[in-house]
Write a protein that binds this DNA or RNA. Structure first.
Lengths: 148, 148
DNA sequence: TTTAAACATGTATATAAAATACTACTTAGA
DNA sequence: TCTAAGTAGTATTTTATATACATGTTTAAA
C-alpha cells in the first residue's frame, strides 16, 4: 500500500513553496534540494499549476509561488488530486473481472476504510505541516535565509 | 493507492473457504472459480497456512480448510499479514533519503490516517463478509451445492 | 534585440515490484 | 503404485511508475 512518488513530490513542492513564502522557487532548485528528478518534478508542478495550487512564472527570474494560503490547502485534497488511482482492489477499477462483486461486501468495507483515511487527511492543511518547524524545515531544505 | 492482488487473493481464498464451510476446497478449484493464476494463489495459500489461517491437506482428496471460525478472522489482520509493504511514502521505508524527514510532519499525519484505515478493517471479520449473502456468494463462486 | 533562464509538452526508455509460469519434489489416499 | 493434491524455489513476464530526452515557448535582463 503505497502512495506514488508523484503524490509525495507534490506534497514536497507545496511544502517547499510554503516555507519559501513570498519568494519564488524554481523547479530546478526544488529538485536539487530534494535530490529528485527534475523532469518528474516538472510534471508534478504542471499538474499542481493546472489545478490551481500554484502559479508558475516563465522566463528569467521566473519560478513558482503558492496560489493559496497554506491554511486552505488540505492534504486530503492534494492526495485526491495527485494520486490518480485510488481504487484499492480490482473491483474498484475498470475491467473488473471479480465474479463475486455483486454480493461481495469487501468493497463497501474498503470504501469505509478509505473514507476514514481521507477524513484524517482532510483534517490537516499545509499550514499544519509547517507548524513551528518552519525554520528547521528551511534549514533542511537549504533555503538560503529567512525568506521574504 | 493499491492493495496488491496478493492481499486481494488472500481475502478471496478465505472468503471462499468460509462459504464452503466444512468442505475442503482445492487451490485448483479456487483458482478456476476466480479465473486467476493457480501458481500465484499457491503462494498466497502457503502464506495463509504458515500464518495459521488455514489448514492444508496434501494428497488425494486433500485441500484447504479454514482453521478458525470466520468470526475470529479480522480483515485488518489479514491485510497486515499479507500486504507486505504498508509504508505509504519513502520516509516510512528503508533507504529513506528524504532530507526533511527530521522536521516533516507528514509521516505522523499519514500514520494517523493509516491507523484510521486499519481501525475500520479491524472492525470487520470474515463473518461480516458473508452476512446473509452466503447463498448468493456460493452461487457466484459456482460452489456445487449447499455445503455441509 | 539577443541571450539565457525559466516553464511547457510530448515521447521514449529504464526500473522495480508484482504477477505469473515453470520445474521438481513430497505427501497420502484409492 | 498411481494420481491428485500441496510444497518450494526459480525464472520470466507484465505493468505501473519513474526518469530521461528532445524540443518549444515565454520573458526579463544585458
Amino acid at each position: 500500500m503505497h502512495l506514488t512518488r508523484y503524490t509525495d513530490y507534490a506534497l514536497r513542492v507545496l511544502l517547499y513553496l510554503a516555507v519559501k513564502g513570498e519568494e519564488r522557487a524554481t523547479i530546478h532548485e526544488i529538485a536539487e534540494s530534494f535530490g529528485v528528478s527534475r523532469n518528474h518534478l516538472m510534471k508534478v508542478v504542471q499538474d499542481l499549476s493546472h489545478r490551481g495550487y500554484i502559479t508558475t512564472i516563465r522566463g528569467k527570474n521566473g519560478g513558482l509561488l503558492l496560489n493559496r494560503p497554506p491554511e486552505e490547502i488540505t492534504l486530503g485534497g492534494v492526495v485526491r488530486d495527485t494520486e490518480h488511482e485510488l481504487g484499492l482492489v480490482e473491483c474498484f477499477r475498470d475491467h473488473n473481472e471479480c465474479i463475486i462483486t455483486p454480493a461481495c461486501r469487501l468493497k463497501p468495507i474498503l470504501n469505509e476504510a478509505m473514507g476514514a483515511f481521507m477524513q484524517v487527511l482532510d483534517g490537516y492543511t499545509l499550514a499544519d505541516m509547517l507548524g513551528r518547524r518552519q525554520p528547521q524545515l528551511a534549514r533542511l531544505m537549504q533555503i538560503p535565509t529567512g525568506a521574504t
